[in-house]
């Protein structure tokens, strides 16, 4: 069989590309929602972690070390087949919860390291100049925090997209699952998987592109 025919048969024939797009959409949905929730939750965690309330600080510390030290697939299986097994939650919801929890731990750590990289003297100077606590954060800390945390955050986003490839284990048909199904149906695993990789790669480059674009807008 000619290579072009093979490609056509694997990726396009009988609306196969639509199925791939559907899978891609599921991946994007889970990633985007988890990123949003994870970032909010992560900021909160970071706030607790660096705050002055002792019990919250310990809770945040324990949470971060447990989540960061365990594979996300285990957490996903545990939540879907254990904790939420009888609640009848939709698998996508459970996946979003899992990946939000996971992303939150990572975001909390990356925010903490960015905060630690900042010069404390600047905030103190702002405070002596009469800025309120909130003003000092908004005008002095935050802009620098964004600049420092951005590159790491970007790689967290890309990582998150790739972590979501395990949701096939909880009955979700995402991009990886679609690719696997196609590989089994067409009996051409190598080519199909390379195709899947290229789609994930494109998604990652899209994320890089978006970050690059916001960088340029800020400098202009």
């Amino acid at each position: 069989m000619e290579f072009a025919d093979l490609l056509y048969k694997i990726f396009l024939k009988d609306g196969g590309w639509l199925t791939i797009l559907n899978g891609l959409w599921v991946t994007v949905q889970i990633s985007a929602l988890s990123l949003l929730l994870g970032t909010v939750l992560g900021s909160l965690l970071c706030f607790f972690r660096l705050g002055k309330i002792k019990p919250l600080k310990i809770v945040a510390q324990v949470y971060i070390s447990i989540i960061r030290g365990s594979p996300v697939l285990m957490l996903l299986m545990l939540l879907f087949y254990g904790v939420f097994a009888r609640q009848g939650l939709s698998p996508i919801l459970v996946a979003v919860i899992t990946f939000s929890m996971h992303t939150a731990a990572h975001v909390a750590e990356l925010l903490r390291s960015a905060l630690m990289a900042l010069d404390k003297g600047q905030v103190e100077a702002a405070r002596t100049l009469g800025f309120s606590k909130w003003q000092a954060f908004k005008l002095v800390t935050f802009p620098q925090l964004v600049r420092i945390a951005k590159p790491v955050y970007q790689s967290t986003v890309v990582n998150l997209i790739q972590w979501t490839s395990v949701v096939g284990y909880v009955t979700i048909t995402d991009l990886t699952r679609v690719i696997n199904n196609i590989a089994s149906r067409t009996m051409q695993p190598m080519i199909t998987i390379i195709g899947g990789m290229i789609i994930y790669l494109a998604l990652s480059y899209l994320v890089y592109g978006i970050f690059h674009w916001t960088d340029r807008r800020r400098t202009q």
């Binding site: 609306g15 196969g16 639509l18 899978g23 048909t173 679609v178 089994s184 149906r185």
Partner: peptide, 17 residues
């Protein structure tokens, strides 16, 4: 019923998903 889509022609997922 759980299907894996792994064993054509007994069990597979068609092009339209």
């Amino acid at each position: 019923v759980g299907v894996t889509g792994d064993l054509p022609p007994l069990d597979y997922v068609s092009a339209d998903g």
